[in-house]
Simulated assay, not measured.
Amino acid sequence: MASTATNTPAPTTTKPSATAAADGVTKTSDVFGAGCAGVPQDPANKGSLAGMAMDPVATAASNNPLLTKLVAAVKATNLVDTLNSQEAITVFAPADPAFAELGDAKFAELAANPNQLAPILQYHVVGKRYDAKGLEQAGSVKALSGGDLKIAGSGDSLTVNGAPVLCGNIPTKNATVFVIGKVLTPPAA
């Protein structure tokens, strides 16, 4: 069955809620950022905002056309079940063009070396669920890998370690997701 376009406009200008949710849980109406236009709009599509909200984060990402490289990296490191089983996390998910900046050879090298790739991926995950306002208020959050992530700006100009948030406050069953424009590099050990 072919997907049909809906009359619902892309959530490209929606601003995050004025008040931060204490638990970091968001709704599809809280999503913001110009990059959200790349998310399927048909609510029946599992990669749409409504579809992603129903699934745990790794499963939700696997249905999103903006995150195919991230999903490949998560699968290469056997982190799918780990991410899906977490109770409440925040994920900074690099969009495919962010991985493209690494180059195909570097991505293939990392994917072939899960011990090198896993700490990079863990640097994109925070062990607490935040929405955009909560991140702004925190100013800095600790990644699962132990490194600090600096949050700057607000609304459509929110950044994580200088990486722009392209589409933020995406709800999944167990995480709030922020699609970002670059792969974050963990600090040297």
Rank of each mutant, 00 (worst) to 15 (best):
151 I>S: 01
38 G>P: 03
108 A>R: 02
50 A>W: 00
51 G>D: 00
179 V>N: 04
94 P>Y: 02
49 L>V: 05
41 Q>K: 12
18 A>E: 10
79 L>E: 06
18 A>V: 13
19 T>R: 03
37 A>P: 04
23 D>A: 11
74 V>T: 12
89 I>N: 00
136 E>S: 04
6 T>A: 08
152 A>N: 09
71 V>D: 08
68 T>V: 10
184 L>Q: 02
140 S>E: 15
1 M>Q: 12
137 Q>D: 13
2 A>N: 11
37 A>S: 12
147 G>T: 14
86 Q>C: 09
61 A>P: 11
88 A>P: 09
66 L>R: 15
59 T>D: 07
156 D>P: 06
96 D>Y: 08
174 N>D: 09
43 P>G: 13
81 D>M: 05
148 D>R: 03
83 L>T: 05
91 V>L: 15
22 A>E: 15
129 R>F: 01
90 T>E: 02
102 L>S: 04
111 A>T: 15
171 P>T: 14
70 L>F: 15
158 L>H: 02
135 L>G: 10
136 E>W: 01
42 D>Q: 11
107 F>R: 01
93 A>T: 08
177 V>D: 00
125 V>E: 03
22 A>W: 09
84 N>C: 11
187 P>S: 14
135 L>H: 07
150 K>V: 15
24 G>L: 05
149 L>V: 13
26 T>I: 13
90 T>M: 09
38 G>S: 13
40 P>C: 04
14 T>K: 07
91 V>P: 09
183 V>W: 00
47 G>L: 11
86 Q>I: 12
118 A>H: 06
21 A>Q: 14
88 A>L: 07
134 G>T: 09
13 T>E: 14
101 E>K: 13
57 V>D: 09
127 G>Y: 01
19 T>A: 14
158 L>D: 00
93 A>V: 08
138 A>I: 09
2 A>R: 11
150 K>Q: 14
61 A>M: 15
102 L>T: 06
172 T>D: 03
49 L>Q: 06
53 A>H: 09
140 S>G: 09
98 A>M: 05
128 K>I: 11
158 L>W: 00
110 L>D: 04
34 A>F: 03
147 G>P: 13
187 P>N: 10
54 M>H: 05
